[in-house]
Amino acid sequence: MFAVVMLSGIYGLLSASFFVVMDAVDVAFTEASVGAGISTLLMLTAVAMTGRTEHVTRHKPYLAFAVVFVTGCLLIYGTLDMPYFGSPDAPSHQHVAPRYINDSMQETGMPNMVTSVLASYRGFDTFGEVTVIFTAGIGVLALLSVVRGRESDAEIETLNDSMHEQYLILRIVIKMLIPFILLYAFYVQFHGDFGPGGGFQAGVIFASAIILYVMLFGLGTARRVINQSFIQILSAIGVLIYGCVGLVSILNGGSFLDYSVLSDDALAGQHLGILLIELGVGCTVASVMIIIFFKFAERNEYIQSKNGKST
């Protein structure tokens, strides 16, 4: 199982490089931080909790193979009518895409079309997606929360001492790196209008810095540094900021999520709206990722302490 998890991490990094080759820099950015970073970590924690070995399957997989083979052949037959790879006159490049490419610079004043489409033209979609992420965070909270007694400071100290010797070099290097990772996350957050980046990527990068800290310094120390209920409130605040920007634009006489009315100048309004929305997205994504990791790690600790007591 361990090998499976590591291979899927490598697969995530590889698919990020596919996306760079296909000119999708924003997507590659996200995939590199999510696929190679956070998803591998979560899988590892889950494998640690559920056991490393897998039963040998007793039934023969021929039927499954046949089904998959037939489906694959049918799908490949279906692709014969598709437009060729990279052809500029494919149907997907005809409808709204030329508008986004030609006019988004004048209409929103953002060089990065992906950001302007994400936050302005398709703001509704993104709102929905942020809500899905928030809901997933609530789900993990509901499934994995542990009622935990207060632990004494002495306990934390002894844990820290025992770990101090073990990962000395890693700890020092990570300690130096964390501020830079956080700074980089903020850069990605606020530079998303001009270059690749934005709330989604920044949120994931920010969360990965915190997760690194938790992994090396232990849950107890991290709990004292990061207030759990604050993070939970922050994840809701992100969605709230997003919705409020929409409401404010209604109050200013526009339609929901129409940022042009936020300021006297339409372009400045667009800038302000997109910046605020990216901030909301960043808050929610970062805090949901941190919540998810914390809950997995706490559950792991809980299971281990339970096993320790029973043996």
Partner: peptide, 18 residues
């Protein structure tokens, strides 16, 4: 390149991990 699929997938990746 067409920015629309990029937007859709960018959000889908983060929703996917959640």
């Amino acid at each position: 390149s067409n920015p629309l699929p990029h937007v859709l997938i960018l959000t889908a990746i983060v929703v996917g991990i959640a």
